[in-house]
């Protein structure tokens, strides 16, 4: 039994290494890029309800990968699996060539950061205190707060523009400010890979753009690999360097937004009739839903 598993494991490792090439033939025309994080032949299920079967994805290094798809297509589930919060029923999530489930959780937390959809700010906690908790995977019983911790927390708050809020209580802040604070917390974790589960939900459009600009800056300036689940296809097309379109637990398309976002794809995945034009601001694809035909008009 144990040798079986070992064989399977090395097989999967092999697959993980070869993934970029095998995927080239099928769904990923562009990605021959190296990938530290990916999933092979994943079956993902909640309470016996299977969300995805035989799902394989690779996150290209130093990309801003955005996962989009209709409601309940398995976007967030995939992100949870990639961050080892959900154990796949079959298949492996591979981080740096190793099955993520076999790695110590603290070690994973130094490589992969995650901003979940819902986090709880403890009663009365200040911004600085919350952000400092992002240092947890780097701390120990005797090493609770080094100078390095202090410096990184300050930098994270500066990068997200929350330095002025440092002594405010998190529960007094507005939604947009709060999201920046949580982003600062995962930044303080200092992981080369950062996963964000719907970071723009509950924010108005200005704050959505604000957070996405921040993400883009983190990606460009610091060479981080970002993976975000987003609802808005146009925002995804504008910000992503690599887009993964999920539909019913399968990858419907993936690659650069300019190359894969077409009216046919949107119709196939979302069942929406639309036109895809060039975004006058960024030159990326812009999905314009077809107008409703009014009776009598």
């Amino acid at each position: 039994m144990s040798t079986d598993r070992k064989d399977q494991h090395s097989d999967l490792e092999e697959m993980g290494r070869d993934m970029s090439t095998t995927m080239t033939d099928t769904a990923m025309p562009e990605t021959t890029a190296p990938s530290r994080l990916g999933g092979t032949a994943l079956t993902l299920a909640y309470d016996g309800r299977t969300v995805a079967e035989d799902l394989s994805v690779a996150i290209p290094d130093r990309s801003f990968t955005v996962i989009v798809g209709p409601n309940a297509c398995g976007k967030s589930t995939l992100l949870r699996a990639l961050s080892r919060l959900l154990k796949p029923k079959a298949g492996t999530v591979v981080l740096d060539g190793t099955d993520i489930a076999t790695l110590p959780t603290k070690q994973v937390a130094r490589i992969v950061g995650l901003l979940p959809q819902t986090s709880i700010a403890p009663d009365g906690i200040t911004v600085a205190d919350l952000v400092s908790r992002g240092r947890h995977p780097h701390q120990g019983l005797l090493r609770q707060w080094s100078r390095q911790d202090e410096q990184i927390v300050a930098e994270s708050m500066a990068a997200t523009g929350v330095t002025d809020l440092a002594d405010r209580a998190v529960d007094e802040l507005s939604g947009g400010q709060r999201q920046r604070v949580w982003t600062a917390m995962v930044l303080a974790q200092q992981t080369p890979l950062l996963l964000l589960d719907e970071p723009t939900t509950y924010l108005d459009i200005a704050h959505q753009v604000d957070i996405l600009d921040l993400c883009a800056r983190l990606h460009e300036d610091e060479g981080r690999t970002l993976v975000a689940v987003l609802h808005d296809l146009n925002q995804a097309a504008r910000y992503a360097t690599h887009l993964i379109v999920l539909c019913d637990g399968r990858v419907a398309a993936c690659g650069r937004p300019e190359e894969i976002v077409t009216a046919e794809l949107v119709h196939q995945v979302f069942g929406l009739t639309c036109r895809v034009i060039e975004d006058p601001e960024s030159g990326t694809p812009l999905v314009v839903p077809g107008a409703r035909r009014r009776s009598g008009a």
């Binding site: 949870r80 961050s83 080892r84 919060l85 959780t105 603290k106 070690q107 994973v108 937390a109 130094r110 992969v112 950061g113 995650l114 901003l115 979940p116 819902t118 986090s119 709880i120 700010a121 403890p122 919350l130 908790r133 992002g134 947890h136 995977p137 995962v186 974790q189």
Partner: peptide, 10 residues
């Protein structure tokens, strides 16, 4: 801060 956040922090 929630189970997910805690797990993500190792």
């Amino acid at each position: 801060m929630g189970d997910d956040t805690a797990a993500a922090l190792g």
